[in-house]
Amino acid sequence: MNVVGQLAPLAFGLAAIGSGIGVGIIVGKTIESVARQPELQGRLSGLMFLGIALTEALAFIAIAVAFIPFPAP
């Protein structure tokens, strides 16, 4: 039985859901911060895009791990 092939779609789904939640939290907190201190909008936007890039990178790593072949026992 190929367990890895059956778990790959689950890994894809969890990576997409986790990334979506993470990006939503990052963008929401940035909007909240800009509403509190509008003069920091430029600096906060840069940090927001950095956080989004790191969150998406983790999703890509999780998807890549699903393709790693495991040796048969």
Rank of each mutant, 00 (worst) to 15 (best):
P71R: 07
I17K: 09
V23A: 13
L14Q: 11
G13V: 11
L47E: 12
V65E: 06
I21P: 00
I68H: 01
S33G: 11
V4A: 13
I26H: 05
L50A: 15
G20V: 09
G18Q: 11
A16Y: 01
A35E: 06
I52V: 15
G51W: 03
G46K: 13
K29D: 03
F70S: 05
L40D: 10
K29S: 08
G51R: 02
Q41L: 10
S33P: 01
N2C: 01
G22C: 00
L47Q: 13
P71S: 09
L40G: 12
G13E: 05
P69S: 12
A57K: 07
P69Y: 00
E56K: 13
L50N: 12
G5M: 05
A8G: 06
I31R: 10
G5R: 10
A35V: 08
I26K: 11
G22R: 01
M48L: 08
Q6C: 03
G28W: 06
F49W: 04
E39I: 14
T55P: 04
V34D: 01
E32W: 02
G22T: 01
G22I: 03
R43S: 12
G28P: 00
L50C: 10
P9L: 07
G42S: 14
G5F: 00
S19C: 15
T30D: 00
S33M: 05
I17F: 12
S19R: 09
G13D: 09
F12Q: 12
G28Y: 07
P73M: 06
Q41H: 04
S33E: 03
A64I: 08
A35W: 00
A72P: 00
T55N: 14
I63D: 03
G5E: 14
A66Y: 01
Q37I: 12
S45A: 13
F12R: 11
Q6L: 10
